[in-house]
């Protein structure tokens, strides 16, 4: 047992400000989300009726909800995978200590300072079909690229911006992991005649498994929420709902459609989903990673 100070209530007083903030701005809103999901709130107040599971029945039977949920899942899988594979490749390259490595290790972190909304504004411009970089191609093949009317184009644009913005964190974590791999291991494998690809597959990747799992888990939650700024600045959920992920739908329903109960219900569902992801992380991945180590 490490030595410690005496004082039964001192830590409580020290934690109190934080506890109050967390209670007021975390637990009460979360509680309210669940409570509202069982009532029908009038937008202007003055009446809320307890309706049991009716909101859930409505949301869960709404094809638009499932459409948004499906798109969220697709974005999560593709977005996260790309947002990890790209930094992973870059980290493997930077780990080689070639002349560019030094610059790369600085510059690749820059997106951390650029807000999702800012990069959304910039990418919306760069991918503008008439004045952006695709304009010449569009000139040759009219209608080839138009994220304003083609849902697939819009989704691709969203993914690219998401990957761009997600590089710094994953790059830093994965590179730190790679650099902790003892050189002797890779050298030994090289002398055994293992090709570079084999060395990556058989030595480096297993050694950074903990970091890979970590980035995957964090990236999953991240992709569910961080897409909002990109969607709001680039596509507003369009065209035709092609980029309407759940987090954006909740915002639309709650703040543009005055459907407080519906938005609260969907928030509650999304919260449960994210909590399940977290539980999965703690129960399954932790064990697996420890085993790998």
């Amino acid at each position: 047992m490490p030595p410690s100070f005496a004082g039964r209530w001192t830590p409580f007083w020290l934690s109190l400000p934080m506890l109050l903030i967390v209670a007021l701005f975390f637990y009460i809103p979360v509680y309210l989300s669940f409570w509202w999901s069982f009532t029908l709130e009038r937008p202007f107040g003055g009446g809320s009726e307890f309706v049991g599971f009716q909101n859930y029945a409505r949301v869960l039977s709404d094809p638009i909800f499932w459409d948004a949920a499906w798109r969220t899942l697709v974005f999560m899988v593709f977005g996260s995978t790309l947002a990890i594979i790209v930094p992973l490749i870059l980290a493997l390259a930077a780990d080689r200590m070639v002349p560019l490595s030094h610059t790369a290790r600085n510059v690749l972190i820059w997106p951390k300072g650029i807000a999702g909304a800012s990069i959304g504004v910039v990418f919306a411009f760069i991918f503008n079909p008439f004045v952006g970089i695709m304009a010449p191609l569009n000139g040759l093949f009219p209608g080839l690229w138009n994220p304003g009317s083609d849902g697939t184009d819009a989704f691709i644009m969203l993914l690219i911006a998401h990957v761009w913005n997600g590089i710094p964190f994953n790059f830093v974590i994965l590179l730190a992991g790679l650099q902790a791999v003892p050189r002797s291991l890779t050298q030994a494998a090289a002398i055994d005649g293992a090709s570079p690809w084999r060395r990556i597959r058989d030595v480096q990747l297993p050694m950074i498994a903990p970091q890979l799992f970590l980035t995957f888990v964090l990236e999953f939650t991240e992709s569910v929420v961080s897409a909002f700024a990109l969607i709001d600045t680039m596509t507003q959920g369009g065209p035709g709902g092609a980029t309407r992920l759940l987090v954006y739908k909740i915002y639309q329903d709650g703040f543009k459609g005055y459907d407080l109960s519906g938005a609260a219900t969907q928030s509650a569902i999304l919260m449960v989903f994210v909590l399940c992801l977290a539980a999965f992380q703690f129960l399954y991945l932790e064990k697996k990673v420890r085993y790998e180590r």
């Binding site: 939650t221 929420v225 709650g254």
Partner: peptide, 14 residues
């Protein structure tokens, strides 16, 4: 576990 973006609707009310 639950980022602010997921609880905006009711945080706004609070």
């Amino acid at each position: 576990l639950l980022p602010l973006d997921l609880r905006v609707v009711t945080t706004y009310q609070v």
